[in-house]
Deep mutational scan, measured.
Amino acid sequence: MAAGGDHGSPDSYRSPLASRYASPEMCFVFSDRYKFRTWRQLWLWLAEAEQTLGLPITDEQIQEMKSNLENIDFKMAAEEEKRLRHDVMAHVHTFGHCCPKAAGIIHLGATSCYVGDNTDLIILRNALDLLLPKLARVISRLADFAKERASLPTLGFTHFQPAQLTTVGKRCCLWIQDLCMDLQNLKRVRDDLRFRGVKGTTGTQASFLQLFEGDDHKVEQLDKMVTEKAGFKRAFIITGQTYTRKVDIEVLSVLASLGASVHKICTDIRLLANLKEMEEPFEKQQIGSSAMPYKRNPMRSERCCSLARHLMTLVMDPLQTASVQWFERTLDDSANRRICLAEAFLTADTILNTLQNISEGLVVYPKVIERRIRQELPFMATENIIMAMVKAGGSRQDCHEKIRVLSQQAASVVKQEGGDNDLIERIQVDAYFSPIHSQLDHLLDPSSFTGRASQQVQRFLEEEVYPLLKPYESVMKVKAELCL
């Protein structure tokens, strides 16, 4: 049975990233139509530049190519590739079939990587351009969430054990800070992308030097003109047959890092959902379990974690691919890159769409948070109580021993009897502590235990987050809708 299948058929496997999760716009960027249309555009740009620099290419040939950029006979191309065992030459023939007058000058002087690699770089750039505003929107939604809850005390956790208090907004800023680093890295790697350009079979530009009869300047002009037509500021000066596969490492490393950030955020949300302090959106008709109707599973956060793990592992592909590119190139890269580049971007696209949807509907339960604080705060307040007693004339050592005994009794009630923490009640009825009984409410005010959390939130948002989001103001209103 021949390899390949009808990918629109229910009898043929289709990647869930495309069929179930990723956005239509990201799927289109990695589609065959987008790819092969870009090949034709690159052939047109090459012909236009070659004509401008004096090669015998007519206006009629150029116009014929322009008129057929979208006229792609995919069936013919597939048949040609089956016959020739070469995808680029299959599309040269297919393009030439609908451009008979231009057929002889299509791909003039070029090698397969002229269309293959340059198209990949265009796709990487455009895919990054799709991700950047999506990530900015996630940051914006979380920034709104953090600002609104900047002063809401909550129990902090280290080692997932109760620690000092923080605020809900401050905790959210930990998430935002990681995503801001990801946004900066995505922008950097996007701006650092260079075009492969017009380089020939081993990167020496020998074929173009021959076409222009040894004119170095025209060869350099050709490279520059096509690079500018493709919208790049610069091209690699040095290439082998391909652009260095280190570029793929750079791009997928940034995406993998984004995956790590999203995994951490969504894990926190899942843990908070278990504590009943916070939940992701839950639709009115949504079913959490087929057997347990009360369940409210954090399905979206779980999906993000599941896909983020996949995204983090994909960076190993370009690392290994770059390491086995012998001399000017081997074909070890080809099949692998067809999979890992598309999957990385479709996965990143999915987790950003999902995280935006989550961040637009996060639900906080202040009463649950308050109750958990009441359970733990008495123990945390013991040092403040000791200091207040010393100020009232008591002995630190005597007070410490009193607190120690009462704390152990209260802990026994919590752990052995399943009761509430009654340390404060014990202190309130103990005559030894009568000098500070009137101060206990103040000493137990949760806001006095959150330090500068709310001020940190305000400063972080104003100095770091809002300036970073400013270039994306025009796209901030787009909502994230999930079908599944």
Rank of each mutant, 00 (worst) to 15 (best):
F327G: 10
G54W: 03
F74E: 15
E464N: 06
A381S: 07
K170S: 01
R374N: 12
K147A: 12
Q41M: 13
V198K: 03
M316T: 13
S289E: 07
V115A: 07
D59S: 11
Q408F: 09
I373M: 08
L165K: 01
P366Q: 07
H7G: 07
K415Y: 03
A49I: 04
A335R: 04
L155A: 00
K229W: 04
L469A: 08
W175T: 04
L155Y: 02
S12F: 12
R196K: 10
L46E: 04
V262N: 02
V198L: 14
V92E: 06
L311W: 03
S151W: 09
K170H: 07
L443M: 10
G393S: 07
D333C: 05
C113K: 00
I287T: 13
A388W: 02
Q456M: 10
C98W: 08
G288C: 04
D129R: 12
Q439H: 12
P10H: 15
C113Y: 00
I57D: 01
E383W: 05
A348F: 04
V413F: 09
K276E: 06
C172W: 02
G96C: 06
I358R: 05
H107P: 00
A308P: 02
G109D: 00
S9F: 15
S261H: 04
M380L: 08
G418R: 06
E383N: 01
D216F: 08
T244A: 12
A78P: 08
R296A: 07
E80G: 08
R245K: 09
M225Y: 15
T450Y: 02
A335I: 03
S306C: 02
L130C: 12
H442L: 12
R309G: 03
A381D: 06
C266T: 08
M387R: 01
E481S: 14
Y472V: 11
I351L: 14
K233T: 11
T354S: 15
I62H: 02
L362E: 06
L209T: 11
R374G: 08
K479Y: 15
R137Q: 14
H437C: 10
S140G: 13
L69A: 13
S19G: 15
L346M: 14
D223W: 03
V324P: 03
A90W: 00
M387C: 10
Y21G: 11
G8Q: 14
E473H: 12
T201K: 02
Q325P: 02
I249F: 09
E148K: 12
G169F: 01
R20W: 01
L355V: 14
L135E: 06
A78C: 10
F36Q: 14
I269V: 10
Q456H: 08
C305K: 09
L468C: 14
M89R: 00
G197C: 07
P435W: 03
Q439T: 07
N384H: 14
E376C: 02
Q456L: 12
A392H: 11
G104P: 14
R194E: 00
K66Q: 11
F345L: 12
M278V: 10
R33C: 14
Y34H: 10
M316R: 05
